[in-house]
Structures are given as C-alpha cells and as structure tokens.
C-alpha cells in the first residue's frame, strides 16, 4: 500500500511538471485547485462508504461471502456479480470501496472482475447519456460487441485467482 501511495504521488508530481511546461503555472495551479475541490466534494462520501465496508465486514461472515461470491461459487457468483454490476448505480468512490472490501473478505477474483467490467460498460446509469446523445444504433452495436466481456473476463480471472 505504501508503494502505491508513493507511486501515485510521484505520478501527481510528474503531471504537475508536465502541466507547468505545457500549459503554464497558472493553469497548473488551477488544475491542482480543481483536484482539491473534487476531493472536498467527493471526500464526504468516502467516510460513509468505508463505514459501510467496515460494518459489512463485521456483519457478514466470510463463509457467507464465500458461499455466494467465492471462487467455489463458480459461474453462479459471476452471474450474480454481472447482474449487480448492471443494476447497482453509484459513483466509483462509493462502489469500489465496497467491492474491494468484499474481495478482501473472501469474494472471488472472478466475480469481482466480472462486476467491475459489467459496471464499466453496461451500468444502467450510462444509458440516460448514451441513448439520447449517440442514438440506439450506436448503443446497440456497443452492447452487442461487449455483452460477453464481463463473463469472459470473470471466467478468465477465476482461472487466475
């Protein structure tokens, strides 16, 4: 975890240097201020999101998670995860802590990868933007191209995990 923190701060520092060179110090300062503004805006959601993670951890036994979403639960767990990924709407900084918590508590790699993939390409909250802007033809083509991806990625991750 410490390594990731260091890498991420290094990435932010590199981006600061790049922005300073490309768009100047004023825009760079505005970019950093925008980042802090985002943090202030999203930060308050992180507190309850992580309290939910902790409480679920205390309430749900690892056996129950394994039985429903564990590696042994196989295809059933992946299908449940895909359905949840399509249906459960919410910003990434709320959804991801909960998935990360379930993964640490015994949910399988396959179902977790299937959830995130389904959530990324087919979450219901995407369609109010995609349908009116891009039209039904593009949406249908995009969905038919990607519809098997959550299942395939989930199965492949199950093999790895």
């Amino acid at each position: 975890m410490l390594t990731i923190t260091i890498v991420m701060f290094a990435a932010a520092a590199l981006l600061t240097l790049a922005a300073n060179k490309r768009v100047g110090p004023e825009q760079t300062r505005q970019g950093l201020a925008e980042g802090l503004r985002l943090l202030r805006m999203m930060g308050p959601s992180l507190l309850p999101a992580f309290l939910i993670v902790g409480l679920l951890d205390a309430l749900i036994s690892p056996e129950l998670i394994s039985a429903w979403l564990g590696q042994e639960a196989g295809l059933q767990a992946i299908v449940i995860a895909i359905a949840a990924g399509v249906l459960v709407a919410g910003p990434p900084y709320v959804i991801f802590p909960i998935i990360g918590g379930l993964f640490r508590a015994g949910a399988g790699l396959g179902p977790c990868v299937a959830f995130v993939t389904a959530w990324s390409i087919a979450n219901l909250s995407l369609f109010p933007f995609e349908l009116p802007l891009m039209g039904p033809r593009f949406t249908a083509l995009r969905l038919s191209l990607t519809c098997l991806l959550p299942l395939l990625a989930g199965l492949a991750a199950s093999v790895l995990g």
């Binding site: 923190t5 991420m8 768009v23 980042g35 985002l38 993670v53 902790g54």
Partner: peptide, 22 residues
C-alpha cells in the same frame, strides 16, 4: 481502511485535476 486510502485518494484527485488541464 479509510485512513489508509486517504493519501492515495488525495494524490489521485490532484492527478485528475491536472489531467483535466492537460
């Protein structure tokens, strides 16, 4: 867990803000 991710999330948001400018 929240305390552990706060520094990383801070770096992530700073990077995101800069990417918006770039």
């Amino acid at each position: 867990q929240l305390l552990r991710v706060v520094p990383m999330v801070t770096a992530a948001f700073l990077a995101a803000g800069l990417m918006k400018r770039l």
